[in-house]
């Protein structure tokens, strides 16, 4: 018998601290598999965020930096410029990337930094206990929008892929979903492409994952995925926003 699927080499043996049913682990695995498949384990470094992904530096089996909240793209810029022979990615959640780190992500993308950014969007702050995120949906209840997100008061969720697509420099921008097995298979292709483009130093690559937060949404893991399918996907439509490698401008 032959092993056809197992824990990738690019992940350490450390069990994830994520809640049961949280999709962070799936995103980690997809990134690790793409790194293994591209043979990059000896020349790649990752940057972990602040938020639920904060311990990502323990889970990836190569050099990792833990950044201040929102600053991962700046830290990745420093690493990539200091060691151009290495390949660098960041792993960030919606609060980290789309609120406190808005300037860093926009400008790293605008410089066309030759890094990959993996962006987990679950419409909520998980680590701090379920507060409103910049991607929280209209009328969605969180601990800091207890009456539902009031768009008249606090505005609409930010669509990061669309926003970054207004910039000229980014090489590849895609939004994928982790809400079904079929979606995950598609997401794997996007991650693989981002890492491959990164390996070839083509430019700034960005993959957004539509994900879940069963704990803070208050749903069982499968119900959370169902809820996200019905509520998140209509607002955050999956798709390729930019792929210069395939002529999608």
């Amino acid at each position: 018998m032959e092993i056809i699927a197992k824990r990738p080499e690019a992940l350490t043996k450390e069990p994830f601290h994520y809640c049961p049913g949280c999709m962070h682990g799936v995103a980690h695995r997809l990134i690790a598999e793409a790194i293994d498949e591209n043979g990059l384990i000896n020349e790649i470094a990752g940057v972990a965020p602040v938020g639920c992904g904060v311990f990502a530096y323990k889970y990836f089996n190569f050099d990792m930096a833990e950044a201040a909240h929102g600053r991962a793209p700046a830290v990745a810029t420093g690493i990539k410029r200091a060691r151009p022979d290495m390949h660098v990615f960041t792993y960030q959640g919606d609060g980290d990337l789309a609120a406190i780190g808005t300037a860093e992500i926009v400008h790293a993308a605008n410089r066309g930094e030759k890094i990959s950014v993996f962006f987990i969007n679950n419409a909520i702050y998980g680590m701090t206990g379920g507060q409103m995120a910049p991607t929280t949906l209209p009328n969605m209840k969180t601990t800091t929008s207890p009456y539902g997100r009031n768009v008249e008061d606090i505005g609409y969720p930010i669509r990061v892929c669309e926003l970054l697509s207004t910039l000229v420099a980014p090489y590849y921008i895609e939004r994928v979903s982790l809400l079904t097995s079929a979606d995950i298979i598609k997401a794997k292709k996007a991650v693989e492409k981002a890492i491959r483009y990164n390996k070839e130093n083509r430019g700034f690559t960005f993959v957004e994952f539509i994900s879940t937060c069963p704990t803070n949404w208050g749903y069982e893991p499968e119900k959370a995925r169902q809820w996200a399918k019905e509520n998140m996907l209509p607002f955050f439509k999956p798709g390729v926003f930019r792929d210069k490698g395939e002529g999608v401008e």
Binding site: M1, I4, F16, Y18, G25, V26, R29, I185, K188
Partner: peptide
Amino acid sequence: ITCPDVAITIEK
């Protein structure tokens, strides 16, 4: 593919 904790090994 679905397991968020990468707890599963498949052999064939």
